[in-house]
Design a binder for these strands. Structure first.
Lengths: 199, 199
DNA sequence: CGTAACTCGAACATGCCTGTTCGAGTTACG
DNA sequence: CGTAACTCGAACAGGCATGTTCGAGTTACG
């Protein structure tokens, strides 16, 4: 059977073009994922590519932002694909997820904030980041298993977790916490928030 | 005794000028304290003042930013002056402080971030915000009283608290939490983080 | 190897932001 | 009431970001 191609089937891209696109998206993810106020020139420079080339592939700032978001989500899907957390109880699963994914979670959270002014909020909401979805599902499960508290709104628990993850990333990049310690400290803190107060 | 005036004693300001300065600082505090990327035009408009008038009183963006920070700190000093928390144990004192001051704490935290690119980091560090100092002192005291945990770095506990306060403010402004509920939820969460984990 | 795809510096138009100047009008205050 | 202080719109200059065009050079690929 033939691949069903979208209406306007374009000729395949040349290898060097594809390579540059990848570099641009990498650079965009790095910059958008860590600092606000990123300019097209910044991205081009970081990607080692001419500004004109950037505009060739991404006609506008908004196009680039959208592509970076989708790239981030693809990465997350690929990165989490290997994990199977369903065997572990929710609290242990959370720690496991955290150990490999907390940087990603933080980067995506920052990304979300930094592209806010460039993309349609509805579009952004539709693309629910699977990395974050995992975390949400885990909290849901933890509540169902009776391991996590029920006296606070679950939306709040989620929000608190995201902000604590961001806090850890901040402290790490400020040098007040080191890589190894950070995960443990963060994990311990998150569980303190999630666990029921008095049994 | 006569007031010791700084070297260049300038004639007193006229009442309308002072009124405009106040309006500008109010507006600046509101805007800088809640959103990044604030322009001089934004502040002027928010203050109900001409852009030229703004520049008359604050020759540069940096001058305005510094003035806003000092204004914020003055407000905090005045606002906390009434509170005497030394009678209460640290955890109750924290809840009391929170109840009246968490908005201020959040606004100042945001302010700090939003003026980062406009003022000298050293200058900013020197002006240690008393509102935040109070929180730090309280944590210190809670640890000394044995009410708060010692298994995590106190710098981390502080950072976590600030981010949780910000989380609550976010959720509030997003309409996912209402004013009354927010304080309780936040207080409960903060104490969950601070209290020693069950042995 | 030849052609189409691609890269990219230079230069331009546009727009927003920061500061500044001018000048005419308004307002506080002695 | 008169003068100095103050306000503020208009209009300017410089800077930086977004997009766009041109044209010459390089590179992939059949």
């Amino acid at each position: 059977m033939s691949d069903s191609v979208p209406p306007s089937a374009r000729p395949p891209r040349r290898a060097d073009a594809q390579r540059n696109i990848d570099r641009i998206l990498d650079a965009g993810l790095r910059l958008y994922g860590s600092a606000p106020g990123v300019s097209m020139s910044d991205v081009a420079k970081e990607a080692g590519v001419g500004r004109v080339t950037l505009y060739t592939h991404f006609p506008s700032r908004a196009d680039l932002a959208r592509a970076v978001v989708e790239r981030a989500i693809d990465d997350a899907v690929r990165s989490v694909a290997g994990l199977d957390l369903s065997d572990l109880p929710a609290d242990e699963a959370l720690l496991t997820l955290l150990r490999t994914q907390w940087h990603t979670l933080d980067r995506h959270r920052a990304l979300r904030g930094n592209v806010r002014s460039d993309v349609d909020p509805d579009w952004l909401r539709e693309r629910h980041d699977p990395a974050m979805g995992n975390l949400e599902a885990l909290v849901e499960r933890g509540i169902a298993e009776g391991l996590f508290r029920t006296d606070l709104p679950r939306e709040w628990l989620l929000a608190a977790m995201y902000h604590l993850i961001h806090a850890a990333a901040d402290e790490l990049s400020a040098g007040r916490l080191d890589e190894d310690r950070a995960v443990d400290v963060l994990g311990e803190t998150l569980l303190s928030v999630l666990r029921p107060s008095t049994p």
